[in-house]
Amino acid sequence: MLKHLGSLDSELRDKLIYRNFCKIITNNYLSQSHLKQMLATILDDKYLFKGIRLKEDDSVFTRSFSTLLIALILDADNRKDFLSQDT
């Protein structure tokens, strides 16, 4: 699902990928180690910073939905306290 996080297909991006991430993270279907790994993946140039210097580029969808996933992971951390203070 991460591979298609910034898809231009709104049905895929909004209704399938993001909604399912919401469900699996909110309902604790992923382990804390998976969430940590996902956070580390999202915080790189392929997701959160993808095309950050480009103008009029579709990479804004990847950046936007990366921030939404980060928020979900931080919410899970608030409930379970699994991320280090440095993270």
Rank of each mutant, 00 (worst) to 15 (best):
H34C: 10
G51P: 02
F21P: 02
Y47Q: 05
I24Y: 03
Q32L: 09
S64R: 15
L30P: 10
V60E: 04
D44A: 05
D14A: 03
M1D: 02
T67K: 15
D14E: 14
K50Y: 12
L43P: 06
D86G: 01
R19P: 02
L69Y: 07
G51S: 09
K3D: 13
K55Q: 06
D44S: 15
L54Y: 14
I42Y: 09
K3R: 12
L83M: 09
D77V: 04
I52N: 11
F21Y: 14
F49T: 11
D86T: 02
F61E: 04
K80E: 08
Q37T: 14
V60I: 14
K3V: 06
S7W: 05
K46S: 10
L2G: 14
R53S: 11
Y29S: 05
T62D: 03
M38A: 08
Y18G: 00
S84H: 05
L5C: 09
L69W: 11
G51D: 09
D9E: 12
E11P: 00
T67F: 11
I73P: 00
S10Y: 08
D86I: 07
S66M: 09
L35D: 05
I24W: 03
F65Q: 10
G6D: 07
S84V: 02
L35R: 03
L8S: 07
F49P: 01
G51W: 03
D9C: 07
N28L: 04
N20H: 08
T67R: 15
K50V: 06
S7R: 03
I24S: 00
N78A: 06
K36L: 08
Y29N: 06
L43M: 15
E11S: 01
D86R: 04
